[in-house]
């Protein structure tokens, strides 16, 4: 965009700035995309006013050549804030971008009035407004998208940490209750946290409970065996417990061999085996109460 185009756009925004702002807000309030159920009029007014203000300042100080330049930083930051706030409130991406795009209609209207009989000026202004508003709108959508991705990423991370606790059952005995499908990323997390806990607690036996693992195929079995092998390298024995009848059948049908690890049907069996191996003895006294 060259300087004359910039001048036209700047003129459009600065002449009767108040009128433009009011007309724009009125249009936004009339449009269903503004979602009056999610945003108040006061908030909308404040955002619109701030947007126009920052846009004028940015045009004055830097020109629209490069939206990444420092002159545009306040506006970019403001749009990012609006986009984030709207994403959290439950706006769709197009509703969020409409905030910026709706300004175009107003500007075109003013351009027609300002250009009068000069088609060259009208054309140039059209080009300038379109390119500026488009870029700002796209920026809003991009920020919106990035926020969504951040949320998804964080949730994935949390899910992964949530689903792999390492529990100390007794002195020297750890348990890992696995819930959900075991893929290589989760195996890595399980392995790391288990081995670290083995070091911290000086455990000699780790029970891996797969009651919550829906299916065990060759890949899952391989992941399990990897964990068992790594624990063994640290000097801890592993017991795999919670093997349901169907899973036992699948394992045999697939020809998977869980060698190197003791297997037990239930966690209780595994605990009693682990206690016995460590030399503990459980006796039953008279029940209380």
């Amino acid at each position: 965009m060259d300087s004359s185009t910039t001048q036209i756009v700047t003129d459009l925004l600065t002449s009767d700035a108040h009128g433009l702002q009011e007309a724009w807000i009125a249009e936004q309030l009339a449009s269903p995309d503004t979602r009056p159920d999610l945003i108040t009029e006061a908030e909308l007014r404040q955002q619109s006013g701030e947007f126009l203000q920052l846009l004028r300042e940015a045009l004055r100080s830097g020109g629209p050549a490069d939206l990444d330049s420092p002159a545009w930083a306040p506006l970019r930051e403001m749009l990012g804030r609006v986009s984030r706030a709207r994403a959290l409130k439950g706006f769709t991406p197009s509703e969020t971008a409409t905030f910026v795009f709706s300004l175009r209609g107003r500007l075109f209207e003013r351009l027609r009035e300002a250009a009068g009989d000069d088609p060259g000026r009208y054309h140039e202004g059209l080009r300038g407004v379109t390119s500026l508003v488009d870029r700002l709108g796209l920026h809003t959508t991009e920020v919106f998208q990035r926020n969504r991705e951040e949320v998804i990423h964080r949730q994935q991370q949390e899910l992964m940490e949530l689903s792999t606790p390492v529990v100390k059952l007794w002195e020297g005995i750890l348990a890992v209750p696995l819930i959900g499908t075991l893929d290589s990323a989760r195996t890595q997390v399980v392995m790391e946290s288990l081995l670290q806990r083995i070091v911290d607690t000086e455990a000699s036996i780790a029970i891996i409970d797969i009651t919550g693992v829906p299916t065990v195929d060759t890949l899952v079995a391989q992941h399990l065996l990897k964990t068992v092998a790594a624990a063994r390298l640290m000097g801890a024995d592993c017991i795999i417990s919670g093997i349901r009848p169907q899973i036992a059948q699948t394992i045999v049908h697939l020809g998977v061999e869980l060698h190197g690890a003791a297997t037990k049907a239930t966690l209780a069996d595994a605990i009693s085996m682990a206690l016995r191996q460590n030399g503990w003895r459980v006796t039953r006294g008279t029940p209380k109460g």
């Binding site: 392995m191 790391e192 081995l195 083995i198 990897k226 790594a230 624990a231 390298l233 640290m234 000097g235």
Partner: peptide, 11 residues
Amino acid sequence: MQPAVAITLVE
């Protein structure tokens, strides 16, 4: 053996 080493060897 350190945890990281154990994991590397298994991998």
